[in-house]
């Protein structure tokens, strides 16, 4: 089982679309896949038409009183399950802080699912918080969407230093460009500049596309309604780039 967190400090950069679409591609290749919607905004749950509610809320869940498995829902796609969000997740930081060893809590909760799933995607809320630390402690890979703007570059640097300060040596940060507008010269030149400075940025570029926006109307992953197009090809390329990092990564 490998855990992939999609994470940014900044919101609205295509994080949930990435989680949902990569999880769809993983499941479509036959991998048993789970998405855990940790964001109280519940966008992943919305895309899968699953009610953002879990019995007992975050308190019981984090306290370990509720097992994860009975809360998991099958999506409309083979091999793909979702652990829905709950509005109480807005207080996850507080709930984590109230317990023992808060940063190791998620890792412990996910352990019983080891044999059930090949991949678990954590869709995280945007912020740097105790929850982020717990997510980083549990994850093998952090996928971080970056919009080609100077401000985003600053955010990426913040994230890198946060991870490095947290001494998470095994954690692999994989940034990639998201919401790219190929017609904007500024985007192109910034991406070249940023990639020169940060060679770890993956080469797949997720376009800013109406096809992706349609996900909100269709309420399903891109692959559920489209088989061709720039957007789906970009996600396929991204998944192909991420997969070797997961296969070569040491088990936590």
């Amino acid at each position: 089982m490998k855990i992939i967190a999609t994470y940014t400090i900044k919101g609205g950069v295509g994080k949930t679309a990435t989680t949902v679409n990569l999880a769809f591609l993983a499941a479509a290749s036959g991998y048993k896949t789970l998405v855990w919607d940790l964001d109280p905004q519940a966008a992943s749950s919305y895309y899968f038409r699953i009610k953002p509610k879990i019995k007992g809320g975050s308190k019981e869940l984090i306290a370990g009183k509720t097992e994860l498995d009975p809360l998991i829902k099958g999506t409309d796609f083979d091999n793909l399950h979702l652990l829905p969000a709950d509005f109480s997740f807005r207080n996850l930081d507080l709930v984590l802080d109230a317990g023992k060893k808060p940063t190791q809590r998620l890792q412990k909760l996910l352990q019983p699912l080891e044999k059930e799933y090949d991949f678990i995607f954590l869709d995280c809320p945007p912020s740097i918080s105790l929850l982020s630390e717990a997510v980083f402690a549990a994850a093998d890979v952090v996928l971080s969407p970056v919009i080609p703007t100077t401000l985003s570059l600053r955010t990426l640097e913040q994230l890198k230093s946060f991870i490095s300060e947290s001494k998470l040596k095994k954690l692999k940060l994989l940034p990639f460009f998201s919401m790219v507008d190929g017609r904007k010269k500024l985007h192109i030149s910034l991406m070249e500049e940023m990639q020169a400075q940060h060679p770890e940025i993956l080469s797949a570029r997720i376009p800013c596309s109406s096809e992706i926006e349609q996900m909100g109307i269709k309420r399903m992953p891109l692959g559920g309604y489209a088989t061709k197009g720039r957007a789906i090809e970009a996600y396929q390329q991204l998944w192909q780039e991420v997969l070797p990092h997961l296969q070569s990564h040491q088990q936590k």
């Binding site: 038409r49 699953i50 009610k51 409309d76």
Partner: peptide, 10 residues
Amino acid sequence: LNILNNDEKT
């Protein structure tokens, strides 16, 4: 056939 709920979820 898919059996759906009110959100048209299978």
